[in-house]
């Protein structure tokens, strides 16, 4: 590759990893300087293209999918119920003692703990917007929130908060499309939790730490959250 070829190549693909391109750059000081200037221009170009997306774009995409999926599932559920009604009795008997909602919630908590972690103090700013998407308002502080995201949990779209309290991480889920009949404690895969009915759906509060103050957080959430 000669200098002219190098410079043409550089103006077309400044970050090229082609071996002859890299080799020429290594041995020709003048072309190396040229490449540096083109790369500096490349950075300006990237800055100019960096249009800021809407702050809640991700949340809106995930919500739309959740709502779309829910209406399809409702249709499929009706169709399925007509066909499978005879088998339901047997299924119900076999499912006694099994808590699918708790297992889905804890499955998500495990995934969050191992793969995602928490976002830190920046999550506090996201809480009002997240809650508003789910038709909920916070009328007071909810504690030290270190993660606030819309999360799919099994077939439910949830508002997922992680609160740090007394050295423990506590996962809180608002699940508008999962109504429950009464308050219950759950023990699944080494996690302890409470699932309580809410004005819209339910709320699950879960922690890996058996000493975590779940009741205190439950009380605070019930007092300070308003379902609009």
């Amino acid at each position: 590759m000669n200098c002219l070829d190098f410079r043409r190549h550089c103006l077309a693909e400044p970050a090229s990893r082609a071996s002859e391109f890299l080799e020429h750059r290594l041995h020709c000081r003048s072309c190396a300087r040229f490449a540096e200037r083109v790369l500096a221009f490349q950075r300006k170009l990237a800055e100019a293209m960096a249009v800021e997306p809407p702050a809640d774009l991700e949340e809106r995409i995930l919500l739309r999918q959740s709502l779309h999926g829910r209406s399809r599932r409702r249709f499929l559920a009706v169709a399925a119920s007509l066909v499978l009604v005879a088998g339901l009795g047997v299924a119900v008997v076999r499912q006694l003692g099994h808590d699918p909602l708790a297992e889905e919630v804890v499955g998500h908590v495990v995934e969050r703990e191992t793969e995602i972690g928490v976002d830190g103090p920046a999550a506090m700013d996201k809480v009002p917007g997240l809650l508003a998407h789910f038709g909920v308002r916070a009328d007071g502080p909810l504690g030290e929130v270190v993660l606030a995201r819309p999360c799919p949990v099994g077939k439910h779209m949830t508002a997922h908060l992680v609160v740090e309290e007394g050295g423990s991480e506590v996962d809180v889920f608002l699940i508008p499309d999962a109504p429950v009949k009464g308050r219950r404690r759950v023990e699944v895969r080494g996690h302890t939790g409470i699932i309580v009915p809410c004005p819209k759906g339910s709320m699950a509060i879960v922690s890996r730490d058996a000493e975590a103050p779940l009741e205190a957080i439950e009380q605070r959430m019930m007092e300070r959250l308003s379902w609009i």
């Binding site: 997306p53 809407p54 774009l57 991700e58 995409i61 995930l62 999360c151 799919p152």
Partner: peptide
């Protein structure tokens, strides 16, 4: 759902730009 969420988080901003 998790794979979809990861795709949205990874690429929605660049796709918007």
């Amino acid at each position: 759902e998790s794979r979809y969420t990861m795709l949205v988080k990874a690429y929605s901003a660049d796709l918007f730009r």
